[in-house]
Computed example of a mutant assay.
Amino acid sequence: MKALTRLLPGHGILWLMFFGSVLATWALLVATHVPVAAPHPAADYGLAYLISLCTQSVADAGLPSAVAMWSLMSLAMMAPTAFPAFKTYSDMTYTDAASGTSLVALVAGYLLVWIGFAVPAAYLQVHLADLHFLDAAGKSTSATLNAVLLLLAGSYQFSGLKNACLSACQNPMTFFFSHWQPGHRGALRLGVRLGAVCLGCCWALMLLAFVAGTMNLAFMGLAMVLMTLEKLPQIGNRISAPLGVFLIISGTVVGVLALTELFNGGI
């Protein structure tokens, strides 16, 4: 606790809860890869039940299970990427502009947006599984779909909306000053706005989970690192464009191979 206080002065308990929640979520995601028997419907809806919701194969998972999985993914992957913004807001609590409770409200508003994102993402997963486009690990079995998602994510890296959202994420102090709202409700609305900006920055990269596999922990970790680095101004401006080029080239290669296979199969 003393080490955390030295590294992050102020609100040590809140930061401990924040990082503890992120680590617990990652631990839960790891646990979902260990087969467990689903509890009896009459059993308590505790940790075992939550794990059982996420350990089903993607092909068999219903919408509630998929929403639970995407919510966990969003918390594990996106909360760390917003830490610089949360820390910037925390520094403002040394004045009368904000407080520890408003910091909690800000984080809650941010996470609310990503939990909202989990619903359409889960619906898309269930729909694709029904069409037999996903395997048991949530990985797309369609080369065409993979090519489309890769090209979409790569092209989006160069869009005006992406650049605007990324700029806001890279400059949280400017963002807070531009959209400041006082009080706890204001902090909650500010957190929702921050979450929306983050969503505008990262949604296309998140959809690449269907290419790598929605239950692929390696992809989750790599994507979290890339999205975190992208939000650091000194580093993000150097990797955003190369990442876009890489994704476009990958999508093009996958698309050409899919067309070649289709052409050869028709001969």
Rank of each mutant, 00 (worst) to 15 (best):
P242I: 02
L151Q: 06
N237I: 12
V245H: 15
P233F: 06
G191Q: 07
K162T: 02
L247R: 02
A241M: 04
S167K: 08
K162L: 00
S142Y: 00
M215N: 05
S159I: 00
L243R: 09
W180H: 14
A218R: 13
G160A: 12
K139G: 04
T252K: 02
A212V: 05
S250T: 03
K231Y: 13
A153H: 03
Q157C: 07
Y156T: 08
L151I: 08
A153P: 02
L205W: 14
Q157T: 03
C169Q: 07
G183A: 10
L205N: 11
H184F: 11
T141L: 13
F246P: 14
G191M: 03
G138I: 03
Q234M: 12
I239S: 04
F210D: 08
L188F: 14
S167E: 10
G138V: 05
R185S: 15
I249F: 07
A164M: 02
G221E: 02
G221W: 02
L222T: 10
L208K: 07
G160S: 12
H184R: 12
P172G: 11
K139N: 02
Q234H: 11
M220F: 09
K231E: 10
L247I: 05
S155D: 04
F177P: 00
A196W: 08
L222E: 00
P242W: 12
G183R: 04
A223C: 14
L217R: 03
C169G: 03
A241L: 03
G200F: 07
I239R: 06
L199R: 08
Q157F: 10
A218N: 13
N216G: 09
N163W: 00
T252R: 07
L226H: 09
Q181M: 12
A164C: 03
Q157A: 05
G160R: 10
